[in-house]
Computed example of a mutant assay.
Amino acid sequence: MNKKRILVVASCANSLINFRGDLIKRLIQEGYDVYTAVDSYPDKVLARLKEYGVITPLEYKLQRTGLNPFNDLKTIFNLKELIQQNNIDLVFPYTVKPVIYSSIAANMSKVPVISLITGLGFTFTGLSLKAKVLQRLNEFLYKISIRKNKIVVFQNKDDRNLFFERNILKKINRTEIVSGSGVNLDQFKFRVKDNSFGKTNFVIVTRLIKEKGTHLFIEAAKVLKQKYPDSEFHIIGSVQNSPSAIKIEELESLHDEGVVVFHGSQSSVLEHLSARDVFVLPTYYREGVPRSILEALSVGMPIVTTDAPGCRETVIKGENGFLIPTQNLESLIESMEFFITNPDKIKEMGQKSRDYATKRFDVNIINNNLVNMINSVLAK
């Protein structure tokens, strides 16, 4: 009996390992032949995928940023060709462009699709004219691409509700919700952090753009560092090529002044999370469920984040952290200051974070749900 073939389509090769590695391994264990498709593969990613047992890592043409109708059509027909040449039985795309283009290509090929909406990002923040224009365009592209998909999977209820409210999907469309990409609890092991008598240190791990709340974290650090000199404020992330990017010169200057500790991009954040006390992400970017928060939960860190789609899923108010209004510096400072003046709460709330991660965000729970969906579609 021939094995069913699943094509996982992404925009970034590293995400296949970091976000979907456990799912890919699980699908192979379930007896599926798994193919992957991105625009290009670093050698390290290729090696890992082959270790997993991926049949053939495929490449397709993708313009990651911007919109060009000619290039977009080339991408769709390129994906259609890959689907048909490799006799794919089911397509599983995630992130915006792979979802839109792969869904169109698969529907043209009469191949079923389970698409994963991992967050709506900048275009659905609606904070600028550009965002509003892109939002309307993306709504149209989603409408024409995903309505025929067998299942559309969301990472939070807010995004699903928005798709129904905007008539992107209809009530007849099958939708499901999973709690983010999940976190490997064995990889991000729990550590007890007893900080009853020590200084409190905070960390943010994100792309260094304003929408992710990096500038708010910096402003809070300026205020709190002056008031509590022993406290530390760690920033981990890569500087972006974006109009809203935090300038490297500003970060280096603040680092030299001792206001923040800037680590730059890190291939592994585990040791940093294990060494810090409180995780902060004051984002107003339209998140799915931020993977960085899930990793912090698993390690056992209290969380300070925004009461916004995706983020609000990760905090039980007052138990494992605090939810603050978006773009509210005063609330951010107040929540962070709580842990400086109540260091004994770090251990207690960190334990509750780990408990919550175990109960809701274990990658095995997420992958069980996704595999059951895939089985249900391919069994028909």
Rank of each mutant, 00 (worst) to 15 (best):
I104W: 04
V9I: 12
Q240R: 14
V299Q: 09
N372G: 06
S376H: 12
L323D: 06
K225Y: 08
S128V: 10
V192G: 12
I76C: 00
L27I: 07
I114P: 01
G258C: 14
I236G: 00
D277N: 14
F122P: 02
E252P: 00
M301W: 06
E313P: 05
D194Y: 06
S353I: 05
F202D: 03
E250Q: 05
S265V: 10
V34W: 04
L224P: 05
Q155C: 11
K97F: 03
M336A: 04
R20Y: 10
P343R: 08
R20G: 06
T314G: 12
N173E: 03
D39L: 14
D307F: 10
E219Y: 11
I100K: 02
A47T: 13
I246C: 00
V289E: 03
F188P: 05
G318Q: 10
S376T: 10
I235V: 15
A10N: 06
Q351F: 14
H272F: 15
M108V: 01
I374P: 01
L23W: 13
E176C: 11
C12V: 03
I218K: 08
I366V: 15
K345H: 12
Q226Y: 14
L208F: 02
N71Y: 14
G182I: 02
Q85T: 10
N201R: 08
V192M: 14
A131W: 03
V289M: 02
L294N: 11
T123A: 15
V113L: 07
V183W: 05
V133C: 00
L73M: 14
G198W: 13
I303E: 05
K193L: 14
K352N: 12
E249Q: 06
L185P: 07
I333V: 15
R26T: 05
V363H: 07
R354S: 07
S292Q: 00
N201W: 13
M1V: 12
R26M: 07
P98R: 03
